[in-house]
Design a protein around this nucleic acid. Structure first.
Length: 256
DNA sequence: ATGGCTACAGCATGTAGA
C-alpha cells in the first residue's frame, strides 16, 4: 500500500503537478494541503479521470483547505479537528480505508497573528495529540500525514536558514511534536533515513537550487503500520517542475 | 532575519506562507 502527502499551495494552480504525481507514484491515498479554494471549486474531475475519487474540505477566502484522493475505497470520518468548536480553519480530514484510519493535516504555521497566532498553533498540536492518543488507545492502525509546519530537529532545516525564534523550530514547537511522537508514533522518513539531511520544502527563489530547505511534511505511523513500513521517499522531480508548489510530496509504502 | 517569491481577494495593496 502506498500513502502520500503534498502541500500544493493552491490546488487549482497545481493540477498538472498532482496529475503527474498520481501517474508516477501511483499512491493508493494522497493527502493534499493548502487547497486555497472553496470546496465546490476543487478540481475533482481532473483527478477522477485518472481513477482517483476525492473528498475536499475547502475554505472561503483562499486559505488553508485539505483533501484526500484515493484509488481504493474510503470513508470520510472527520472534516475537522475536535477540541475547538469555533475553529473554522479547514486543516483536518480523517478517513477510514484498508482497515486503518488516516488523518491528513495542515498544521498552523504560527508565525502570523502575533502571540495569538502562535498560541493557536500550540493548541492545535495539543488537540492533535489528544486525538492521536485516542486512536492509539483503541489499537486501530493509524497514521497522520501532512504539512506539520515543524522541523523536528536541527537536522531538518538548512543550517542558518531560520532564526531560533521561528514558529517552525521554537523549543515549544519541537516539544509539542515530541509529545506527539512519544505517544508511540514513528516518523516514517526519519526511521528509514536516520542522520540524512532531507527536505520537503524550499522557498521560492534560489532555495531549491542551493538546497536550502526544510523538512516539515511528515508521515507519523502507529506501531501496527510502522511494522509494515517498507519505503519513505521525497519526490525531488515534482519540485523541479515549472511553476511548482514550494513543497514536494512524501510517499511511503507499507507491506501487504 | 526575511519577503528578494507566490497566491489570493478583488482591483490597490494587504495578508499569509515558512
Amino acid at each position: 500500500m502506498r500513502l502520500a502527502t503534498l502541500n500544493v499551495n493552491s490546488v487549482r494552480k497545481r493540477v498538472p503537478h498532482v496529475c503527474r504525481f498520481l501517474q508516477s507514484a501511483q499512491p493508493d491515498l494522497l493527502f493534499l494541503q493548502e487547497l486555497k479554494c472553496k470546496t465546490e471549486e476543487f478540481p475533482a474531475k481532473e483527478f477522477a479521470a485518472l481513477g482517483y475519487q476525492s473528498h475536499a474540505v475547502g475554505q472561503h477566502g483562499g486559505r488553508n483547505g485539505v483533501a484526500v484522493l484515493a484509488r481504493i475505497p474510503f470513508k470520510v470520518v472527520a472534516e475537522g479537528l475536535p477540541g475547538e468548536e469555533e475553529d473554522t480553519h479547514a486543516r483536518y480530514i480523517e478517513v477510514e480505508a484498508a482497515d486503518a484510519r488516516f488523518a491528513g493535516i495542515y498544521l498552523p504555521n504560527g508565525n502570523s497573528g502575533g502571540a495569538e497566532g502562535y498560541a493557536y498553533k500550540l493548541r492545535w498540536m495539543e488537540r492533535l495529540r489528544t486525538i492521536a492518543a485516542e486512536r492509539l488507545d483503541s489499537f486501530q492502525p493509524f497514521a497522520i500525514l501532512g504539512d506539520f509546519n515543524v522541523c523536528p530537529t536541527a537536522l531538518d532545516l538548512a543550517p542558518g536558514s531560520m532564526p531560533p525564534t521561528d514558529a517552525l523550530v521554537r523549543p515549544e514547537t519541537r516539544a509539542a511534536f515530541r509529545a506527539l511522537t512519544h505517544l508511540g508514533l514513528t516518523d516514517a522518513v526519519r526511521a528509514l533515513h536516520p542522520g540524512e539531511r532531507l527536505y520537503t520544502y524550499w522557498d521560492y527563489g534560489p532555495a531549491f537550487d542551493t538546497n536550502r530547505g526544510l523538512r516539515i511534511d511528515h508521515a507519523l505511523l502507529s506501531p501496527e503500520l510502522a511494522e509494515r513500513l517498507e519505503t519513505a521517499d521525497i519526490d525531488l522531480g515534482l519540485r523541479a517542475m515549472e511553476q511548482p508548489s514550494d513543497h514536494t510530496a512524501v510517499t511511503i509504502t507499507l507491506r501487504q
